[in-house]
Amino acid sequence: TEIRININGVTIHVRDASEELKKLIEHLLRLGADEKEIREVLHRWEK
């Protein structure tokens, strides 16, 4: 699944996002995570 996240005008594009990762990101956004925090989570997730 491919997702695009727009945070304050900055688009983060994620290829091959699992449903689990998608739910995690949606949850973090609801909690008010910023772009830097989302990128950090994505970076750690890929490892």
Rank of each mutant, 00 (worst) to 15 (best):
N8E: 05
I3D: 03
I38F: 06
E37S: 11
H27K: 13
E37V: 12
K47I: 15
V14K: 01
I38C: 01
R44S: 07
H27S: 13
E26M: 15
A33L: 06
G9T: 05
T11L: 13
I38P: 00
K36W: 13
E19C: 10
E35F: 12
N8R: 07
K22G: 06
E46K: 15
H27W: 15
N8A: 09
R4N: 10
E37Q: 10
H43S: 13
T11E: 08
E26G: 09
L21N: 00
N8Y: 02
V41Q: 09
D34Y: 04
E26F: 15
E40G: 06
H27N: 12
V41L: 14
V41C: 05
D34T: 13
I5G: 01
R15D: 08
H13F: 13
N8F: 03
H13Q: 07
E19P: 12
V14E: 02
E20R: 05
E20N: 09
E2Y: 03
R30W: 14
R44T: 08
R4Y: 13
R4P: 06
E20K: 08
V41A: 12
S18F: 03
E26K: 14
E46P: 09
D34A: 08
R39T: 05
E2Q: 08
G9P: 02
D34F: 03
T11A: 10
L24V: 13
K23V: 12
H13N: 07
R44P: 01
I38Q: 00
I7A: 06
H43C: 12
R39C: 05
L24D: 04
D16Y: 15
L29F: 10
E26W: 15
R4F: 14
I3M: 11
K47V: 15
D16V: 06
N6Y: 10
R30V: 06
R44K: 09
V41S: 05
D34L: 08
A17S: 05
I5Y: 01
I5D: 01
V14A: 03
L28A: 09
L28R: 05
G32Y: 03
E2W: 02
R39I: 07
K36E: 09
V10Q: 08
E19W: 15
E2D: 13
H13R: 06
D34H: 07
L31W: 09
L29I: 07
G32P: 01
S18H: 06
E20V: 09
I3V: 08
T1A: 10
D16I: 06
N8H: 09
G9Y: 00
A33F: 06
T1M: 12
E37H: 12
A17V: 09
L28Q: 03
I25Y: 01
E20T: 11
S18I: 04
L28H: 06
L24P: 00
K23E: 09
T11N: 09
L28D: 00
T11M: 12
D16L: 06
R39M: 06
V14Q: 03
A33P: 02
R30P: 00
K22N: 06
G32M: 03
L29M: 11
T1E: 10
K47S: 15
I25E: 00
G9K: 04
E19I: 09
K23D: 09
K47D: 14
S18R: 04
H13D: 05
D16K: 13
L42K: 00
R44M: 11
V41G: 01
E20F: 10
L24Q: 13
K47C: 14
